[in-house]
Amino acid sequence: MATAELDLPLDDTPASRFLAWLIGGLVFLAVLACAVALLAQGALDRLSERPRIVTVALPAVDDPAVGEAELARVRAALEDMSGVAWTAVVSEEELDKLIEPWFGVVAPEARAELPLPRLLDVRFQPGVVPDLTALARKVRAIVPNALIDETGPARGALEEAAQRLRWLGGGAGLLVLAVLVVVVVVVTRASLDLHDETVDLLRLLGAPDRYVARQFELHAMASALRGGSVGFAAALATVVGLVHLPTLWGLRLVPVVPRPLDWILLAMVPVLAALLITLAARFAAVHGLARLR
């Protein structure tokens, strides 16, 4: 007999009726934005987990014995540094490949005539960010003209791009949630004005403000659950589609896949949205009702 129908016919107005759709669309955008932020964070984490390699170039010396001794001292000093996994001298074959673009294929006897530097790869443990200044100071204490260079020049740019994407995605997600709050406040205030006679009746029957506000809150929450779940499902399908589907055709549009924690965090977005929507509706209704006596 008794129904859980709201006392206020809030589904009867266009603004309220479309609230669920609006929420769905905005939750879709918020989830996508957060997915971008989380994928960017994932990329950053993966980059930071990759061991970093620094190349030390020691200038050529006339006396091979002196060169060998310098190399041994530099290697010993570097291997003493914290975070260094190992050091390796770049082989002559690799050196040949490096100079090939400038000198072509160089015969072994000709190479001896070239003042080629001795190259030393220094590999750091995963997650360690090399302190290039300290490293250079240490090397140059032994070989003053030594050059230090971090291998993979694109890495810095990659990191920077991922960081930007992370902030952009996070910021866009927050912005969409803020828009959601504003939309709910505006719709609630409009509904309150539209249903002023019914609100007046409820208050005449003794309904306190919190009872009337609860009507708006419940309606907003129901719209959030309906619209939010649709928006979330659509966003999830989009993320899965972008990340996994291209691999079926051998493509890789997104270089990282969401981690289990990312899925959990994404699932929190509609929950957070529903919470914000409910609070925003309550806030708008309570403030709107305060104008009435």
Binding site: A2, E5, D7, T198, L201, A207
Partner: peptide, 18 residues
């Protein structure tokens, strides 16, 4: 001043629910 979207039962129940 009855609420048109509610049944007769729910209209009468209103003050009790409040």
């Amino acid at each position: 001043r009855l609420l048109e979207h509610l049944s007769a039962f729910d209209n009468v129940a209103l003050p009790l629910r409040i």
